[in-house]
Design a protein around this nucleic acid. Structure first.
Lengths: 251, 251
DNA sequence: TAGTGGTCTAGACCACTAT
DNA sequence: TAGTGGTCTAGACCACTAT
């Protein structure tokens, strides 16, 4: 069916069917999910949708807005609106302690990282407590954007005592590989997982819309001795990751 | 400071400071986070904010919209807009297999549930595969809204073979307690965790705004024999839950 | 330069709440 | 009945893209 007749109000508008922007949104959503509007295809311009549907442009934008937040549509100013292509989901175990680099390599995916921060800093109170730092100690921080197959997946912000990572610039890809060299690879970790709407700054880094759902993971890793090695805060795209955990009966 | 002078454009508007709705949103957000606008206090009506700030009502609504999505502000039609009170976060272990009822009781919280669905149904293809049903078998479904201290926390949709739950109406509070009676309490489970923007229907049930971030958990539970007992899909409010997992070194 | 999405206005009517 | 948020319009100007 031609896109113009697709948007004819008779196709989607029902009296007493609720707000017009909701009806239009659901109709477009359905068309995308059913493949009538294939990935990467262009939507008509907002002004044209308005003309075809008989709605104002404001209402059209309101209809499209949530589909953009959900990641079904990508809007590019000056260029147009396009049906987004689906992101491949990745699974990660929640019971084995693995490194991102090794984990992706095992799947045959190409890993790349962009450095957001790397160096020695004055520790925050939380870092002092969690890493067990002493007064005057500085802290090593490495923050990076993690990509798999060129696709941004997560922001990872790790903090370590300088004892374990005197020179943060030495970390090129795998932090755990570096820690292994000095016999300080952690063997145990506590992870705290929650869901959060990704805020503007991080959304820009991850290339998603603000308010998209993301997984926030705080990880504290330990040596066999019980000493804390690293404290990492990560933010994963909700549409790109599945975490898998195996549970045992409660004691 | 009086609310009216608080909203004076001179207080928050900067030339070249970006879109007006973003500037106003950040300003109101800051006022809430700093406690200048305490929980449960009423914001001025949208028309009044528009008059005080010199903006149109549309722009004021746009500024407030995201704060509503983030759960900082609650809007009630016909009544007004109010600063939301913070939700108490709850932790749940990802390594021990516990029941919601028992878990909350251990914390001294009052558990209540509202039934969304309870009975025998024709199974979906996914239920047939996951639960290992035979042709013609029906499936027992119990779906409920879980609350702790009157606060909606999660939607839980469980499916079981009728062999394990011949009469779903018998489940009053704890499903696991019922399963225990017949010696069918699961001892192991696989959970799959991801983040998602909570859609309209579920958002209404949970009493949150559409698009708020939530944790989606799919759990398949097993008997010691390896047979699947239940398959549960849960949706937790992102602002109400922290899941905690302990990881061991990868093999 | 033509076309696109991003922002913003002034005004209208509706459904709902509180009284 | 007065006040509130929810929806919707017609129009304007801007920043950016593609050519």
């Amino acid at each position: 069916m031609h896109i113009n007749s697709l948007l004819d109000p008779a196709q989607w508008q029902m009296p007493n069917g609720g707000p017009l922007y909701v009806q239009l949104r659901r109709y477009i959503e359905k068309a995308i999910l059913e493949g009538i509007l294939p990935a990467a295809s262009a939507l008509p311009a907002e002004r044209e949708i308005a003309a075809l549907t008989g709605l104002s442009r404001v209402t059209v934008r309101k209809a499209v807005k949530r589909l953009v937040t959900e990641g079904l549509i990508v809007q590019r100013r000056g260029s147009g609106s396009f049906v987004a292509s689906k992101v491949q989901k990745v699974e990660q175990s929640l019971s084995r302690l693995t490194s991102f680099t090794e984990d992706m390599a095992r799947r045959g995916m190409t890993v790349s990282s962009t450095w957001l921060e790397r160096g020695l800093f004055m520790p925050s109170p939380q870092e002092v407590v969690t890493l067990g730092l002493r007064a005057g100690d500085s802290v090593a921080r490495i923050a990076r954007l993690r990509c798999a197959n060129e696709q941004p997946m997560a922001i990872e912000r790790a903090s370590l005592a300088t004892h374990f990572l005197p020179n943060p610039l030495r970390v090129e890809s795998s932090l755990y590989a570096i820690l292994e060299e000095s016999g300080n690879r952690p063997v145990r970790a506590i992870q705290r997982i929650s869901a959060t709407n990704i805020q503007e700054a991080d959304a820009n880094i991850l290339g998603v819309e603000p308010d998209v759902a993301g997984l926030r993971i705080e990880r504290t890793s330990y040596l066999p001795s019980g000493r804390v090695v690293e404290f990492t805060q990560s933010l994963y795209r909700g549409d790109a990751y599945d975490f898998v955990a195996e549970l045992q009966i409660s004691g």
